[in-house]
């Protein structure tokens, strides 16, 4: 069973080893373990006051790489679109719009992934969460807002959180 603090300490150790590059120096390894313990202690204190309610289940983690690949293609496509609108504003005019978009995720983790994905894609930025599980989104063009409302990304993120 991987609890939050246990996986955090393993991740931090790997992080230290990758960054330092000295895997056989006793002093550096000792310092790494000490700083890992300090960070885990501080994270445990934070955990006591602001508990992380929903940790990703293993299936979500397994589905993550496929979603990243899809998201990367989306980011590239929208990058080209926005770059086109910067260089040729007359031929490709912008039409900024601020609207509410429904989201079907229920967990905090799913909502965070969805809002972050929207913001990561150039052309759409999530502004804030509205009541009735809606998300206020600012889009650079009406076209981008319509694409978002078609719900492809929403469907993928929700499917990723399923058991």
């Amino acid at each position: 069973m991987f609890s939050y603090l246990r996986s955090l300490s393993i991740g931090l150790l790997v992080f230290w080893l990758l960054l330092s590059g000295y895997w056989d120096n006793g002093l550096l390894l000792l310092l790494g373990v000490l700083s890992m313990l300090l960070v885990v202690y501080l994270a445990g204190r934070i955990e006591r006051y602001y508990p992380l309610r929903s940790l990703a289940n293993p299936r979500t983690l397994l589905r993550l790489p496929a979603y990243w690949a899809w998201l990367f293609v989306e980011v590239v496509k929208s990058n080209i679109d926005v770059a086109r609108r910067i260089w040729f504003p007359r031929r490709y005019p912008i039409s900024p719009v601020l609207e509410q978009v429904p989201m079907t995720q229920t967990t905090r983790l799913g909502r965070t992934i969805y809002a972050n994905s929207i913001t990561l894609t150039p052309g759409t930025i999530s502004v804030r969460i509205m009541p009735d599980s809606k998300l206020l989104v600012h889009a650079l063009t009406h076209q981008g807002m319509d694409d978002l409302k078609a719900g492809e990304m929403d469907r993928r993120v929700t499917a990723m959180g399923e058991q």
Binding site: A83, I86, P96, P122, I125, H138
Partner: peptide, 19 residues
């Protein structure tokens, strides 16, 4: 520099941040 207000400028800056 070209976009009219902050909200649209943020879209431009996310190009440099991502791709």
């Amino acid at each position: 520099l070209r976009f009219p207000d902050l909200y649209t400028r943020l879209h431009a800056s996310s190009i440099t941040d991502t791709l």
